[in-house]
Design a protein around this nucleic acid. Structure first.
Lengths: 150, 150
DNA sequence: TATTGTTATACTCTATAACTATA
DNA sequence: TATAGTTATAGAGTATAACAATA
């Protein structure tokens, strides 16, 4: 099956290959897709799973602190919290010391789905880490942190 | 201003810190946000700018090949092409050798906005690369390619 | 004045499914 | 049978603006 004249197969990005941001976006897209497929049976997205796990580790955390940690807008955080609340995965409460704040805590259903998700996420991480030599992983993570920290 | 008992400042992800996928997502989010702000005056997203640049480098490319390069679904690609077409940035044509295929080419308006975008993208890339030691950048890119290639 | 949460709104990306035309 | 493009549809994330309550 010969290649047609105006239907070449393109292998690279040419000039754009120098764009670090492009490679980050492509890597993220690939991981995001694999993550989404892995957790499709639980109907959990990457953001949702991350938030559940975060709330589990920091019971009573406020939305503002979730937003800071996940590097999201307040409104974006609201949207995700609302979706998880609608499925009875978490519950909002009142802060005792600052009446502007609300506390977020997992409900039994949320705890249950999180535990299931953790198993799949572990497999997903294996798939990802298997692409690297073990000794390279820490260095890769450190470079990624360089991008988003501070 | 003392920290309240139920409003601690959280610095890390604890157990989740081992998740490579999480760090990729956070790094991408940071770069995505900076890119979007940088190009807001042109009203171009990261995907849209990437596609314009790609079409510029590969005149007459088919949607399928754009999709493969950008690691996107066919329908997703359609949506982005449609938006750029609606703004007269590109035009669809007919392939001479395969009547199922369409060719995509830049229009003058698209070429103009791309050239403006390239200037801003160069600044954006400087912002990103300044976070690294020069000699680390190639290694970082190579690791990112490891994630999404093949 | 600044912070926290909220609501309303709008846009982009993403994917699935089903369809037509062509190879 | 497989590929390319299309349409319809739906969900998720993202952000802005404006508002109320509280610090």
């Amino acid at each position: 099956m010969p290649q047609e004249k105006d239907t070449p197969v393109f292998h690279g990005f040419g000039e754009m290959d120098h764009l670090v941001g492009l490679h980050i976006a492509l890597a993220h897209g690939t991981v995001y897709r694999h993550f989404t497929e892995s957790l499709s049976h639980l109907e959990l997205t990457q953001k949702q799973a991350t938030m559940l796990w975060l709330v589990d580790e920091h019971a009573g955390i406020a939305q503002t602190d979730i937003a800071k940690l996940m590097r999201m807008d307040r409104a974006t955080t609201m949207a995700i919290v609302n979706r998880l609340q609608a499925r009875d995965f978490l519950v909002r409460g009142k802060s005792k010391t600052d009446r502007r704040r609300q506390t977020i805590d997992l409900l039994p259903e949320g705890k249950k789905v999180l535990e299931l998700a953790k198993l799949v996420i572990a497999e997903h991480e294996e798939w990802l880490k298997d692409k690297f030599k073990t000794r390279d992983i820490d260095r890769f993570v450190s470079m990624l942190k360089t991008v988003y920290e501070k």
